[in-house]
Structures are given as structure tokens and as C-alpha cells.
Design a protein around this nucleic acid. Sequence first.
DNA 1: ATCGCTTAAATTGTCGACAATATAAGCCAA
DNA 2: TTGGCTTATATTGTCGACAATTTAAGCGAT
Lengths: 222, 222
Amino acid sequence: MNPVTEQPVTAADKTFLQLRKDIVDGKIAAGSKLSETDLANRYAVSRAVVREAINRVETCHLVERRANVGARVVALSPERLVSLYQVRESLEGMAARLAAENMSDDEITDLMNLLDSHLQTVQSGETYYQEAGDVDFHYRIILGSKNDHLIAMLTEGIYHLIRMYRVQLGMAGPRVTTAFDEHRSIAQAIANRDAELAEILMRRHILYTRNNLAKKLLEDAS
Amino acid sequence: MNPVTEQPVTAADKTFLQLRKDIVDGKIAAGSKLSETDLANRYAVSRAVVREAINRVETCHLVERRANVGARVVALSPERLVSLYQVRESLEGMAARLAAENMSDDEITDLMNLLDSHLQTVQSGETYYQEAGDVDFHYRIILGSKNDHLIAMLTEGIYHLIRMYRVQLGMAGPRVTTAFDEHRSIAQAIANRDAELAEILMRRHILYTRNNLAKKLLEDAS
DNA sequence: ATCGCTTAAATTGTCGACAATATAAGCCAA
DNA sequence: TTGGCTTATATTGTCGACAATTTAAGCGAT
């Protein structure tokens, strides 16, 4: 079920989306156990659909299951955050490379317009659009790669985990001003059809973001 | 369920492994529909465990499901092969980079020994160890990355798909002699702890493999 | 003959009950 | 008191039956 193009139709679909949301938002604590019976009561569905929903959030790497024991929400350790961002750097770097090769001229124009509107929003002092804007930017590049495997892995797999870290560790979107300039550079490289540079810049951008998060984590720990 | 360290315990585990094998080996044709009832009879289990098994092979991107319609084995198009190898290039490149940083000295020694034994096997004219040797080489580097997300994505996700292409398109392992030299270079970069070079070489190596496969596909089509 | 509607068959989705396994509690012995 | 064993409880795994949906077939109208 592609979350973008397709609608939830079955009860398992809705339960899966609700469960994923509850986990990402921390409504269900990280590291806690998922009782099938409890969830069945909570969502007012049978255990069978809960099991299917759990299987699907497991696909997103949001929970881990053990046979005859049950499923637990993943723990949010700094180490896992780093390893997650390493994967993200790798995949989104490739996405930027492919986007430079495969995005249509119209899509690139739209991307530029998005950045312009984003700039105005930032300058006007409004902040709560930041994360949405950031996600939107990355999202367009991912889709611009035109690579189905890549798109699925990022949008259905990794991104929810990243959001989970952002929400639960209280990270207010990306580093605002500097990140914006980096976005511009990436977009420009894509517009120039410079695949090599687009990949390098995207990887650096994500690396910076990771370092920024790691620093924040250390500060919070002290 | 990590297929390396853990054993199949439940009926759903065994059914999943069997189903995955049957799909990868082409015993169940690519693009064909998966009837839950048929599979339940074939494997002598209830529909519930078949459904769980199907959900899991869907996680490996080996089948695609649509609500109220059913699951189909994925089609093996040249385009999808290319997109798959782009993802592989990205992830295994990162794996090689991380392996250069994180593999222990002992693990690197073992890797070198593996290459030596592999060389002897090749020189003695035996060929049927080639694919196993190739898989083993890549596998060790993936594990050497010490990145859980990366390891899971490659070993539980992408690799079965790659094997499916190899088996069903009748590809006899990797390009033997040239690939071996590339392996040596990669291992040497890792031994030198040159992460940057290890990544570049691994990406080139996988790119060459992809081009080789694409060429073979074109030849077969003609 | 073709198109559309209605109806019948087959397939997937959902449910509650039972079986198998793991966890917790209680007990006995050292 | 502690350690290990036995028993009780709770949770997951599995099953067959029923409901909902899709697909195919049949029929009639134009």
C-alpha cells in the first residue's frame, strides 16, 4: 500500500496507519511491549488484524518481533540514530544523483518554486512550516529519482523512523537557515544536471544534519 | 527473524522460508498470482500462516499485494533490475566504507584468507564455488559495516531479489576473473582503512556487474 | 453482435476459539 | 535466603468458519 497514492481500505490498513502514528508520535512508548490483546481492544478490532498491522510496522523497522514472545517498539539509542542516518545518507545521495538525471524540467521548476516560497516563509518569521517544508523538499527529490525500489525504501521504511526520532527527541525540524542554503545548492546542481555534485551535496547535507542531531543528543544527556 | 543467527521455529517461519525459496528459484513463476488457498494446500498449513508468509515475502519486495485482490510475484523487467542495482550500489558502497572503519583486524585477515582460497579454487578450474564465494565476500563486508539497519536491508531485503534475477535469468555467478581482481582491490582498501577508496571501488565493482548483466539481457533478447 | 446490468462463484478480509509456548508464581530442598 | 523445580497464568501461534469484496458468468436490451 503506497501511502501517497493509495487510500486505506481494509481494517488492517487503518489499524496499521493508526499504530504507526501512535508509535512515531510516542503515544506508545519506545521500547515498550506490544500486547496483541491490548491493541485489539484499543483499536476495537480482532487480534488477526492487529497481528497484520504489527507485521507491517515491523517492515518499517519500527518494532522488532521474536517468535512466541511478541513485538517491542524499537529503542531510540544514539547509536541506532547514527546507523540510520548512514543509511539515509547513502540512499538519499543516490536519490539526488538519479534526480539530476531523471527529473523533468517541469519538476525542477516546481522544486525551485518550492524553495522560493519556503524562503519567504522563513523570512517572515513563521517557523512551524519548516519541518513540512524540509520533508517536502527531500520528498520531491526522492520521487524525482524515478527509482521504485529507492522510493519505497525511503518513504515506507526509513522516513517514519527518522520522524520518530525527531518527534520523540524533541527536535524542531532541521537547522533552519544553513539547511536552506544547502537545499538551494542541491537544487541548483540538479537543475544543472550535475548528478555527481548533487549526490555529494546531498550526502554532506545529511551528514551535517546527523552531526547536529548527535550534538543535541549529547547536550540533552549532560 | 534474522536468517543467519536464528532458526525457524514457528510454522509461519518455515512456510515463509519455503515460499521465498520457491519464488527465488522460479518454482513459482515470476508475475504469477499467489492464491492463499492453493498455497495453504501446497504447504499443508492454514490460510492464516500462508497470509503471514506472504506478508513477509512482501517485505523482501518479492511480491506485491493489493487490497481485496491478492498478491502477485514481482515481474523481472530489465528496468527493475537496473533500479535494484542502483540501490545495491548505494548501500554496499556505504557498507564497504563502514567496513573499512569498523572491521576488526581479525576479520580483515579472514577476508584476505577467503580471497586466497577463492583464488586457488578459480585457478584449479572449479567453477561451481564461484557464486557462493562471491556472495560470501560481499556478505562479510556487509556484516563488517557493523550497521544493523544496513545489514538488515541488504541481507533480508535486496539480496533475495538479486538472487532471484540471477537464478531465473540464468546468470552463472559474477564475471569470474575480472571480478576477482576487483574483490582484491576492495579488500586491500579496507585493509588500508581507506574508507573513501573502499566505497568508490565497491560502487564501481557493482556498476560493472550491472552493466555486464544488462548486456547479457540484451543479448538474450535478440 | 455488443454493451450494460444482474447474478453467481471464487477469493480475500475478519473473527472467535483452541493449541502451543513462554512468563510468572509458588513451593520445596539445601 | 537462595536456587531450582513444578505448577499456574498469560501471551502468542494456529485453525476453521463466516463476512465482504472482487471477478466471472449469464442474460437481456439496443
